[in-house]
Design a protein around this nucleic acid. Structure first.
Lengths: 357, 357
DNA sequence: CTGAAAGCGCTTACAG
DNA sequence: CTGAAAGCGCTTACAG
């Protein structure tokens, strides 16, 4: 009795061919969707393959097709649950397209050149940069090599690289209007990475909304998307002689830390003493301990757009930059005082949608 | 003027060889650490390579060396920050060994066979299973193919696959002793996946500690490592006529949800009305809103052990299962009433280390 | 539909 | 140290 899987290092298509009594080409065609092969031959091959435990070698296939079916994902800030959520959705969507994720973590800045070198060595079919920017030389190099690159949740100045973002400026503006309508008087802002496009746009929109009401003064401190730095920034703001009564924190990840500092170090009640709003609508923002009023970044839509751009560019070979901007929505919870009007409730979830005047 | 990077699909070693006036072998040797090549030839090659924008094709190299330098990481539960932390550390440590991570997410159960098929096609050099078990056939198949597999934070019954875990039984026991010493009388347990080894061990140790004090009754509900299910489990426990005064939740991710339910749905004070302890010592456990008394799972040590096993087995070709068990420690915070004795404070961090009797 | 053959871009004995 | 050559495991014209 034998009948089991052959215990050998790796079965090749030639071995299967020999076993099935066909050519190696026939084996290859059996495992190539759409190749011309008779049902009969195919069945023979499949039987032998199963018996021998054959699996096509994706490496050898890649070498010849010039397609690795691998997408490099460069992602930092994994401690911010927004990114693990994105990663999971990316994995799902790419798997559905029969692509795989080669993950590079821990590159927050433009120090990504070494990682980039490795991406290139693996001849990845596309690159998703979720929290890093490439230097423009690298970006050029990808374009030259015909490898599509998509920036996720970030743009570059000259828009020379494809990107998927949400309407950060609108979001910042909505939060500003919301806080003004809530009767707040003194405003603070805790920034993310100062030179990141999301940070600039959120602050820009916020400024604009306040300016429209004649408010020009915003106390700004830097949090760099880091919990620890956000805590320090919060302490500075809350120690101010004229303490803000509303703080916009550039993302929920930091907003959680800011709330903890306000409550547990300063003994403040939220939102009675201090209103806090964030951005992303990430997990902890929805936990009852925080209930952060926030602007959503719809992960599924963002990921879908990212994968669509990539698939399109891989198929067409045209890496002309594409930009997708997705609207977000202001979700109202308990971390900020409410305006008298403009609240809408849908399925138990509150939104702020003031009448346009 | 030219002098820029050549805009071509991909530069090969032969092109570099032609440009440098050497053989293709010489180019290969230049990029193979330890290969015998004269400094002079090497310099020539390097110069041409740079000028042409050459990067060795890792795919072609893999085909011939039978080493992809890719490790497959299968991971689920990314919404539990423990796992993103693990992922980041794994990325760092593997990168240091010049390995890369091919990530497969979203496979919680033994439904991992399709994903497994793909791992195999990419001829990965090793597999890390962080929240999935392979069926034993698959495990056998990896062994047959000589691919090292390490279970992270999980073991199998027959210990036929290498694993890295912490002393979950000891941890459960310590938590039990801690709660008994704290004067609690009625105990609840919210489980993780019931058939996971970590869950069984944590509960086993907890049971043992209580039994040693003559306590046999534990109200058990199932949380399956899911926030929503943990909330439901908490509601059931807190609705009991004789409500527990101490609940051990199988991990911090669920414990956070349980605390929120206790406080915001039942209006309970923690730890006055109810003590809660968790496991993992994950980010939110340390946030002041929660301050969960928990048992640490030292991620750096666990990841180091995992990578060590993998590197060892890849180098030696010997995939004999290895098991590494790392001790954890009971970190005391504010979510549970304190025992009168046995507390130790080190660097502002409290631990429970009762004298052994 | 099928097989023989070339070739993807490398590494690595082998001979010099 | 160096080059010519074989070969890794496939895909894909090409001819039949």
């Amino acid at each position: 009795m034998d009948g089991g899987v052959i215990k050998k290092s790796s079965v090749t298509s030639s071995e299967v061919a020999a076993h099935a009594g066909v050519s190696q080409s026939a084996v290859s065609r059996t495992f190539t969707p759409g190749a011309s092969i008779s049902p009969k031959t195919r069945a023979k091959v499949l039987a032998s393959a199963k018996m021998l435990g054959y699996r096509p070698n994706a490496i050898a296939r890649s070498l010849i097709t010039n397609r690795s079916r691998i997408i490099a994902v460069v992602m930092a800030y994994l401690e911010n649950l927004f990114y693990p959520d994105v990663l999971e959705e990316l994995g799902r969507r790419l798997a559905a397209e029969n692509y795989h994720v080669l993950l590079f973590t821990g590159f927050k800045d433009r120090d990504s050149d070494p990682v980039f070198d490795q991406l290139m060595q693996y001849r990845v079919d596309g690159i998703i940069l979720a929290s890093t920017a490439l230097s423009s030389e690298l970006s050029d190099e990808c374009t030259a090599a015909g490898i599509p690159v998509v920036l996720f949740n970030r743009t570059t100045e000259r828009d020379e690289t494809s990107s998927v973002t949400t309407r950060n400026r609108d979001g910042g503006r909505m939060l500003g209007e919301f806080l003004v309508a809530g009767g707040h008087k003194r405003f603070g802002y805790i920034s993310g990475l100062e030179n990141s496009s999301t940070n600039r746009d959120r602050l820009g929109g916020f400024r604009e909304a306040l300016a429209a009401k004649g408010i020009d003064k915003i106390e700004i401190r830097t949090g760099n998307y880091s919990r620890t730095e956000a805590e320090a920034a919060a302490r500075e703001l809350l120690l101010l002689p004229k303490r803000p009564d509303a703080i916009f924190v550039a993302n929920d990840h930091m907003a959680v830390a800011v709330m903890d500092v306000a409550r547990y170090e300063f003994g403040l009640s939220i939102p009675e003493d201090l209103s806090i709003v964030g951005y992303d609508d990430v997990g902890p923002a929805r936990w009852p301990s925080y209930g952060i009023t926030s602007v959503t970044q719809p992960i599924e839509q963002m990921v879908e757009a990212t994968v669509d751009i990539l698939m399109d560019q891989i198929a067409s070979g045209d890496t002309e930059p594409q930009h997708k901007i997705i609207p977000g929505e202001l979700v109202v919870r308990t971390s900020a005082r409410l305006p008298k009007t403009g609240m809408v409730e849908i399925d138990g979830q509150k939104f702020y949608r003031p009448k346009k005047t």
